[in-house]
């Protein structure tokens, strides 16, 4: 077993465990913590995949911004495990069966079906900021601008929604 495979397996196992914990934990604040841990292990995967810039952005955006937002809302609303609504056991069983069947079907459908032609001379520079920046501002400049507009709209929408008694 090579080192990289070992790292992959450890990170993968960690992300699966943390995500399961995130799902099962009663306290939503703990859920957030476990989700952040899951994101960190996924960021590790990115590093392993030689996508360093992506890993950094991932940490900053997800762990740094989005999850903080979640935490902030949780704190604002003062939700804890006591306020957590209970789900019935029968429903949990049904949900487990559904999700499990989805997994089985997905794996069954994708198993052995993936044939990619890996190029002989892979470019190790692909995941670097320089390269990504060039692609982003040349080939993807229009979607990039549109993403900016999306952000603006989301920002306005979020402010509007969260504000009390908005006079339009």
């Amino acid at each position: 077993m090579s080192l990289s495979l070992a790292v992959f397996l450890i990170l993968g196992l960690a992300s699966v465990i943390f995500s399961l914990l995130m799902v099962f934990t009663k306290n939503p604040v703990h859920s957030v913590i476990f989700l952040i841990l899951t994101f960190f292990s996924i960021a590790g995967q990115y590093v392993l995949l030689n996508a360093q810039f992506l890993a950094v952005v991932h940490i900053i955006v997800y762990a740094g911004a989005i999850m903080v937002l979640f935490l902030f809302v949780l704190m604002l609303l003062n939700l804890n495990s006591a306020a957590e609504p209970k789900q019935s056991a029968r429903w949990k069983l049904g949900a487990a069966i559904a999700a499990g069947m989805l997994l089985v079907t997905l794996v069954g459908a994708l198993k052995g079906g993936i044939q990619i032609a890996v190029p002989e001379n892979t470019n190790p520079q692909v995941g670097l900021a320089q390269n990504l920046g060039r692609v982003l501002f040349t080939d993807f400049v229009v979607p990039f601008e549109i993403a900016g507009i999306l952000f603006l709209a989301a920002m306005v929408g979020a402010v509007l929604l969260a504000k009390r008694d908005v006079k339009l």
């Binding site: 699966v16 995500s19 399961l20 995130m22 799902v23 957590e84 609504p85 209970k86 789900q87 429903w91 949990k92 049904g94 949900a95 487990a96 559904a98 999700a99 499990g100 989805l102 997994l103 997905l106």
Partner: peptide, 11 residues
């Protein structure tokens, strides 16, 4: 699938 499962069981 874990994500789907979470969506399904959490309220």
């Amino acid at each position: 699938c874990i994500g789907v499962f979470g969506v399904l069981i959490r309220r």
